[in-house]
Design a protein around this nucleic acid. Structure first.
Lengths: 245, 245
DNA sequence: CGTAACGTTGAAAAGTTTCAACGGATGTGG
DNA sequence: CCACATCCGTTGAAACTTTTCAACGTTACG
């Protein structure tokens, strides 16, 4: 997206001419991108913007799935729990990402804001009715779902077969790539989530995450900067560790 | 589905009146279900039926994604590899399941037949063009993708946080539920895949799978029958182990 | 019948977790 | 402003689960 397009969008946004979800289009994943003005207006009508504070719950697993969401700013963690409290974070979502499955009566996971987060909220029933008339939107959602599915399979490979070191390397590269896609600097990456969240995402304990980060630091592969940021000093080595070779 | 409907379908199938993918509709997941006759015919035109022998490769990761598939009979394993050969099986697919992601230029995983398998093959480009005119079909695919995504998240919880015993318990229940959905007996379940496949699916080694099965057998929770079948003697205990409580 | 592939079992080794202690940052109240 | 508690992250040592290495039994198939 060119500088001009961004600026135009910002102006239109200020004037209330553009659906705020379009802000997310930097990742070309927003729900509304590729719709014409009339269609956008209709999607607009059923949408509500909401703000969530740091750590607040967006919805819980098994709750009736009344809404779906599109993230405008901030970050979200999606997770599942076992009966005894063990947790697996199945994904971190950022601006432009879609939250909530279609075609389901209840949520299959819980979602919580990582930091102050803005969301566009859609009543699922209304959105599904809209989808019947707007195949383009459904096409887009299918694209998003395919993308998520591919990411989920990468994660299954990570959880099933990678060592702690390899998991951390993969994780840092994932964040770096996500940052680049969102048009933000991809090298000193920023960890917006706690060590506990990282552990539950990578299927490790907090202590193993901490130790492994220390090892990577000692090996000169990464550097810890202030503000929970990480410098990827040897990206090629990280790639190798991540097993993407 | 009633006995009558099944018989009618079989007859129509013999007469060539029904798209063979409809055979899969027992799980209400086939690509073609809910299309009218004309639409089915159009889908038919771009479809080729193919047979795959035991263990033969359907496609490999990173290959250009020229086709998508719908499984008619048999079974398929889907997997990803690391550079050094470590493997994670991300799913087992059975009749009615859809194989291959939409909106992607290359396959994100490899697929191989578990046993003699029949597939309906669709050129992806042609199917995508058809989708533009048949929103119902796209709607259906989105439903399938949502279902797959939910299953993937269950699997991430399993791989990230469950013990070997819990993984095996979850796996047996998964197979049992799948069999029931397909209208086959759900209690003595049949293992159509090798121990190595199970290990790569559960993120364990062959030996751990073998030992854990032995433990479950000693505890009287399961029984090994001839023909690679397993009797779930105490399903409630399995449920408890699987952590679905 | 012999060979190869698959599955089981045992013992040692490894990686990760658990338990425990400590340090630094943050925030609160006296 | 400082004492104090709390939360988060780090580090160490012991414990545990799973893996690795190795041997053996079983099954399938030429």
């Amino acid at each position: 997206m060119s500088w001009f397009a961004v600026k135009t969008r910002e102006r239109n946004l200020q004037d209330g001419l553009v659906h705020p979800c379009n802000m997310c289009a930097v990742r070309d994943h927003s729900v509304c991108a590729s719709l014409d003005a009339d269609e956008q207006a209709r999607v607009n009508q059923i949408m509500t913007q909401i703000d969530m504070g740091d750590g607040s719950t967006i919805f819980d697993e098994a709750e009736p799935a009344t809404h779906v969401f599109n993230i405008t700013s901030g970050g979200v963690k999606v997770y599942k729990l076992l009966a005894d409290g063990r947790r697996a974070i199945t994904g971190f979502l950022f601006p432009g990402d879609f939250l909530g499955l279609m075609h389901r009566e209840s949520y299959a996971f819980s979602a919580e804001a990582l930091s102050a987060t803005k969301l566009c909220r859609f009543p699922r029933e209304k959105l599904e009715r809209l989808l019947e008339e707007m195949p383009k939107l459904e096409h887009r959602l299918l694209g998003l779902a395919s993308h998520e599915l591919a990411a989920a399979q990468d994660q299954m490979l990570l959880l099933g077969r990678k060592t702690a070191k390899e998991r951390l390397a993969s994780f840092f590269l994932l964040l770096s790539n996500a940052a680049r896609r969102h048009g933000r600097p991809d090298n000193p990456i920023e960890l917006t989530m706690s060590r506990g969240d990282i552990a539950d995402y990578l299927g490790l304990t907090i202590e193993t995450v901490s130790r492994t980060v220390t090892h990577l630091k000692r090996d000169g592969i990464i550097q810890l900067l202030e503000g929970n940021r990480i410098q990827l000093s040897r990206p090629a080595k990280l790639q190798e560790l991540a097993g993407l070779t």
